[in-house]
Computed example of a mutant assay.
Amino acid sequence: MSLKSFDIGHGIGKGQFGRVYIARKKISGYIVALKVLSIGELIKVNAERQLRREVEIQMNLRHPNILRLLGYFQDDIYFVLILEYAAKGELYKQLVKSGRLKEKKASRYIAQTARALSYIYQKHVIHRGIKPENLLIDLNNEIKIADFG
């Protein structure tokens, strides 16, 4: 697999080492998010081990409220994570846009987040960045915990 396997769309996020793009797999038409990380930047700040840990953790988690890592590949310049696409984006952006959530929706999001956290703690994983920017929302208004780096 390579970047040529995808039709890459617009950027949907930005991180410390790269960007996230919406993309469509050319053969299947499946919509994903591609987290494209610069290998040079990762090496420069000695973050290869951190990335390896993120991949190992996320490949072994299977829960409806955790963003799925579908696969990964690399070339000479980039390391690419193929992620489930959460179409409604970050909870943070929804909060900024609407100011606050209705009680019913907020309680659903809290329950979903709590179930996902309980699951990862049972797997002996601690997510050190639970914040609205790392809680994504899919088309069905389900929370997806992201960014296990």
Rank of each mutant, 00 (worst) to 15 (best):
G99Q: 10
N140S: 14
E142F: 09
R68V: 12
I130S: 00
K88Q: 07
S107W: 06
L135P: 02
I22G: 06
L136A: 01
R115F: 07
H10R: 12
Q50I: 09
I77N: 09
N65C: 09
A106Q: 08
G15E: 01
I43G: 10
H127T: 03
A47E: 06
E103F: 12
H124E: 14
V125P: 07
Q74D: 13
Q94P: 04
L91H: 05
P132K: 09
L3S: 10
D7T: 13
P64K: 05
N140C: 12
R19N: 10
Y85L: 06
I110A: 05
G29Y: 07
I43W: 11
E103I: 12
K104I: 13
M1V: 14
L34D: 04
N60Y: 10
Y72S: 08
V45G: 04
S2G: 15
E84C: 04
I130H: 00
R115G: 09
Q112D: 02
R24L: 11
A33C: 03
F73H: 08
E54Y: 04
D76S: 14
K93S: 14
A146N: 00
S38H: 06
H127M: 01
A33N: 02
A86H: 00
S5T: 15
A111Q: 05
K97F: 13
I110T: 04
N140M: 11
R108C: 14
G99N: 10
K35M: 03
A23S: 12
S28E: 07
L139G: 11
I12N: 07
G149S: 01
E90V: 04
S107T: 08
I126T: 01
N140E: 13
K4D: 15
K123F: 12
Q50Y: 05
Y119P: 13
Q122I: 09
V96A: 11
D7H: 10
K26V: 15
V36C: 07
L67Q: 06
Y85A: 02
Y85V: 03
T113I: 09
R108W: 12
I120K: 03
A86E: 02
I126H: 00
R115D: 15
T113N: 01
R49A: 14
E84Y: 02
F6H: 09
N46P: 10
L95S: 08
Y30E: 15
